[in-house]
Simulated scan of single mutants.
Amino acid sequence: MSISAADVKTLREMTGVGMMDCKKALTETNGDIEAAVDWLRSKGLAKAAKKADRVAAEGLVGIASEGNRAAIVEINSETDFVARNEQFQSIVANAAKLALGVNGDVAALAAAAYPGTGRTVSEELTEAIAKIGENMTLRRSSVLEVSQGVVGTYVHSAIAEGLGRIGILVGLESSGDKGVLVTLGKQIAMHIAATNPLSLSSEDLDPAAVERERSVFVEQAKASGKPDNIIEKMVEGRIRKYYEEVTLLAQVFVIDGENTVAQAVANAEKDAGAPIKVTGFVRYALGEGIEKQEADFAAEVAAAASSQ
C-alpha cells in the first residue's frame, strides 16, 4: 500500500526514529501507526530513539591509516564503561577505516555500508544503542593526506590498537627516509597531544583570537603607566610570546625540551636526507566542547525517597 509522507512524519515525531525506518514500519504494518510504533519497539529502534536526548560525551576516538593518508573519528557514548565494550570498539575501528573512503565527511560516513551486516554505519549504531542501552553518536571525522611522506599518528590513553581518548594526525610532506619520517611524525603527534596547539603557525591563527589577546595585552601594558612607544613594544613582545605558546612550529618540542618543533624538523632533515614540511595536524580529544550533565546523586536519592 501507499504510505503517506504525513504518516511517516507523525510516526517520526512519536518515536524519534529515522524517516526510512518509519516508512518501513508503516509498510510492514499496512499503515497502522500504533502497530508501527510496536514494530519499531520490537526491533529495538524506538528504544534507541528514547535515549537520543541523553548527553553522550564519553566513548572513543579512533584512527586508521592507509598509505600516505590517515583518518580520525569520534564516536560518543554516555559512559566510559561502553568504551570497553568489544562491539562498540569494533564500530569505532570500522568507522575510522570507512572514513578513509569518504574523506572524513560525517554524513557520507553515517550512510556508508557497514561491513558484513547489510546496514549503514548509522543503522549499526542504532542496533548497538538498542543492545548496549546507551545513547551513541557519530560526532566528527577528518582525513589528512600528503602527496609523499607520511601522516604521523598517535593515540593517547589507548585501550586497543588505534582507539583511545585523544587522537592525533600530523602530515609530514617529504621524499626522505620513511623510517625517520614515521618516528618524527609520532613524536610530533605526541607533542600535539600534550600541548594542544591552536594552529600550525602564526599565519594560521584566527585573527579575531589574536586581536582579543592584543586587546588584553594593551590594557595590561597601559596599567604600567609607561609611554605609548614603550607600551607598543611591550605588547608586541607579549604577542610573540603568545605565538610561541599556541602555534605548533614555534612551541618548544616536548621530546627534547630545548628546540622548537620547527628546529626539530630541520634537524631531522639531515637523517631523512630530504626537506620535511609539516603540512597540518588534527587533534581530537574525547568529548571536548560537549556540555556534560553532572549527576546530583544526593538529589536523586532524596527524590527517590520522597516517592516511596
Rank of each mutant, 00 (worst) to 15 (best):
A93F: 04
I192A: 02
T29I: 15
L205H: 04
G149F: 05
C22V: 03
V55I: 13
S122W: 00
D21N: 15
Y154W: 11
K23W: 06
F81V: 03
W39I: 13
E232A: 10
R54W: 15
L249H: 00
A95W: 08
G185F: 00
K51P: 01
I230H: 05
A128W: 14
S174R: 10
T126H: 14
V73I: 13
E74N: 11
A107Q: 15
L181H: 03
G179K: 09
Q251R: 06
R238Q: 11
G104F: 01
G133T: 09
P275I: 04
K43P: 02
A264V: 00
A64M: 01
G59E: 12
A298C: 01
G289M: 08
A107M: 13
R238P: 00
E269G: 00
N94Q: 14
V235C: 06
G118I: 09
I255Q: 13
N196L: 11
T247S: 05
S175T: 06
T126V: 11
R84S: 03
T27C: 01
L138D: 12
N259T: 13
L200M: 15
M136Q: 04
V150A: 06
K186G: 05
T117S: 14
E127K: 12
T27Y: 01
V278L: 03
G18H: 05
A70V: 02
G280V: 07
A266L: 09
E13S: 15
E34R: 12
V73E: 05
A25P: 00
Q87T: 07
V151G: 10
V146H: 01
A48S: 12
G225K: 08
G16H: 09
T137K: 15
G225S: 09
N229F: 12
A304R: 12
E74R: 13
E58T: 00
V235G: 12
V55L: 11
G257D: 15
V265C: 00
L169F: 12
L181K: 03
S2I: 14
A272L: 11
D32E: 12
G67E: 11
E211W: 08
K270Q: 09
I91P: 06
N76M: 10
F88D: 01
S174I: 02
A56M: 11
Q220A: 14
E127C: 11
V37S: 10
V155T: 09
F297Q: 14
Y284D: 07
E123T: 08
K43N: 10
P115E: 12
F88P: 00
S122N: 04
N196K: 15
F281R: 07
G185A: 04
D80F: 02
S90W: 03
L11I: 10
G164V: 02
L26M: 07
D228C: 00
Q87P: 01
A285W: 08
G44Q: 09
A70S: 15
G164A: 05
A303N: 08
T153E: 13
A52F: 08
S142G: 08
A93G: 02
N135Q: 13
V252P: 01
E294T: 07
S122L: 08
V235L: 05
A158S: 12
E211G: 07
L286S: 09
L198Y: 00
A108T: 13
S147C: 03
K23T: 04
I33R: 15
A130G: 15
S122I: 01
Q148H: 14
V82M: 03
G237N: 10
G118E: 13
